[in-house]
Simulated scan of single mutants.
Amino acid sequence: MMGEFEAIRPYNDAEVPAVLQRLLSDDAFLGTLVRFRFPRLAGPFGWLLRPLVAHLLAREAKGIRSVNELQDRIEPYVDRTIEHATDGVSYSGVENLQPGRPYLFIANHRDIVMDPAFVNYSLYHARHPTPRIAIGDNLLQKPFVSDLMRLNKSFIVHRSITARREKLAAYQTLSAYINHSIRNDGQSIWIAQAEGRAKDGDDRTDSAILKMFHMSRKGEPFAEMVRELHLIPVSISYEYDPCDQAKARELQIREATGEYTKAPGEDDASIALGITGYKGRVQIHFGRELTGEFSDAKQLAAELDRQILGNYRLFPVHYLAYEMSTQRDPALAVPSAASLFKGEELLRAQAEWNRRLAACPEEQRPFLIMQYANPVLNQYRLKQAEAAA
């Protein structure tokens, strides 16, 4: 059975030592580490630092024989990176998870690497197994990136295929792999609710992804597939998005010209900024398992959206942005930031928000405001709909 997943699956325990050895002799990987660790010295002394970094890594990797051992070993570094770039990570809703049950975690998508990293962080610290992570092949330009991700329980989503028949076959394999992982291997999966990040802050589940889950189970009712996969909606809330300026620029150019072409290396820059950039506070919320009788993808998407948007944590900056937004809706009765937050917290948020606005070119500002205002709009629309129901 695993043969059909050969091209996309994560590495298994038996493969770990060989892949680690391959990474230790990969020049591109060592060069990237040197640039990250010693940015000033990387140019003139890169040739000297590479063997040193390889030696330190070999010492660090000694005796690692399984994926779990690898995750245990790198966890302190991940924690340090996470804690260095945030004002604290909190998580809630883990009581909704039953020990020993594999889940399909479906989350909103703001950051390429950090979304699944924060979900992993929360589950690891709550003593739940970490999931296998869906990652687009557009991010795996270099072989070492693919090795690193597959070592860390990532499986590959072939996004760059354009031919219709091949695309269909790739989705069929992906569907079969996700079902196999949860039903046969008892291993959880993390996947984003839509392809690509929600650059405008409007988190919506793409029903095409939900239909894909069912592609390899066409013989069984849609509702049965939903029950068997144990779907958990996950809300990932960032106080500040390190890539907000870049997203505003892209949205503005797209609106003005009708298209946006990424520059070479732009994804790499987004990944680096997303990992190291300041995020303020971060909150991860695990919603309730979807157990209703869902007859189609549209119904399922609506419930995922209800939980993901409803459990999104709104910080002072979201209300400050909403107050400036042209999309304000008087019918929603959204309270002001000043009425909800007090003293130091509010002052800090105002200063940070003003700093971000000042750094943003005027024509791009409406798109920066939109990113932070949309979660408010979505949550209060939801409240209004529930009150009317």
Results as ranks from 00 to 15, higher is better:
159 R>H: 09
292 G>F: 00
242 P>E: 08
268 D>R: 02
233 P>K: 02
210 L>H: 05
85 A>E: 01
263 A>R: 14
351 A>W: 00
243 C>D: 06
290 L>N: 07
357 L>S: 01
236 I>V: 15
173 T>Y: 05
309 L>Q: 10
6 E>W: 01
78 V>G: 01
141 Q>I: 12
276 T>W: 03
275 I>E: 00
29 F>M: 11
121 Y>W: 15
173 T>P: 07
305 D>W: 06
201 G>W: 02
379 Q>G: 07
3 G>C: 00
121 Y>G: 04
94 V>G: 02
49 L>W: 02
116 P>I: 03
22 R>P: 01
46 G>A: 10
185 D>Q: 15
76 P>Y: 07
384 Q>R: 14
387 A>C: 10
123 L>Y: 05
93 G>T: 07
192 A>M: 07
51 P>R: 07
199 K>Y: 06
125 H>G: 05
12 N>G: 10
382 L>T: 10
363 E>W: 07
66 S>T: 14
253 I>G: 06
115 D>L: 08
342 K>D: 12
109 H>V: 11
75 E>P: 02
376 V>H: 06
265 G>A: 08
196 G>H: 09
353 W>V: 01
348 R>E: 14
69 E>N: 05
122 S>A: 15
359 A>G: 12
55 H>A: 13
34 V>H: 01
348 R>N: 14
25 S>K: 14
42 A>D: 08
269 A>L: 11
164 R>F: 09
53 V>K: 02
181 S>D: 09
70 L>R: 03
319 Y>T: 06
354 N>A: 13
55 H>C: 11
160 S>Q: 15
218 K>F: 08
255 E>Y: 04
133 I>A: 01
120 N>H: 09
52 L>Q: 09
299 Q>I: 03
331 A>S: 15
127 R>K: 13
186 G>M: 07
64 I>A: 02
210 L>F: 09
315 F>I: 10
350 Q>S: 05
317 V>M: 03
53 V>H: 00
113 V>S: 07
384 Q>E: 13
163 A>L: 11
179 N>E: 07
98 Q>K: 14
339 S>P: 06
265 G>M: 07
6 E>V: 01
387 A>H: 13
324 M>R: 15
304 L>A: 09
166 E>C: 00
371 Q>D: 04
161 I>L: 15
230 H>Y: 06
294 F>H: 08
376 V>K: 04
70 L>H: 00
207 S>P: 13
177 Y>K: 07
162 T>M: 10
89 V>E: 02
97 L>M: 11
204 R>K: 15
190 W>G: 05
88 G>W: 08
139 L>W: 04
385 A>C: 07
121 Y>H: 15
227 R>E: 13
